[in-house]
Amino acid sequence: MYPHETRIYIAILIGVIIFLSLIGFFIVTIVRYQRKKVAFHVEKIKEQFYYLDKERERISKDLHDDLGASLSAIKLRLQCLKNLNNENSSIIENAEMQIDEVMKKIRHISFNMMPGVLQRRGLDEALKELIDIVTDNTDITVNYKFHAGIFEKNNALHIYRIAQEILNNIVKHSKATVVNFTIVKIKSAIELSISDNGIGFKKKEITTNLKGAGLKNISWRADILKAKVYLTTTPGNGVDYLFKIPI
């Protein structure tokens, strides 16, 4: 080989190495950028949910404590009325019944916004209450088994919200009669599984564009928990959710 040929080959080799290094650098930068972008996105959602939940907690408390107390006080004052004739006493009775109705609505709104039981008694108790509400108000049988243990407050809230959203969907859309609900600890993860025997749905249609705020919320909260989500469903065959949440 002539010396100038060797020089050409070396130059080509150097050129190729530089080119490959540039491409490598480029790819690494893109991957890093993407990862940062995802992390940033999750952080942003996390922050948004934090403030959203905080605000919900405040409104829920105001509704429950202040409005609830004021309405009870009005009812007490009505009960103080004496010597009423039949007509007036039936008016008062009606007014009391209306107060009870308003209180029930407040309870419902306040509980949906932030269940006090979650903050005081933890995830297990809150989920039990959520399931009781479903079984008390519908014909759905819920078989449940869970021992979630103690979670960091915000994570417990995310898991609770995911369960609440899924149960809401089951009640509203699934026509299911049986729901199986379990939370178990397997190795270094918590597995949350909720399945029903309802009408199911076309997974692609619903998940591709994340139709509905409910599913979006589930997906975002799962991202915050760094959970892996497995959704199995076809029309006519119920819905099966499995979340693997690292601990």
Partner: peptide, 9 residues
């Protein structure tokens, strides 16, 4: 407000 009502009753 609730205490007032309760007292009255």
């Amino acid at each position: 407000v609730y205490r007032d009502g309760l007292r009255l009753l």
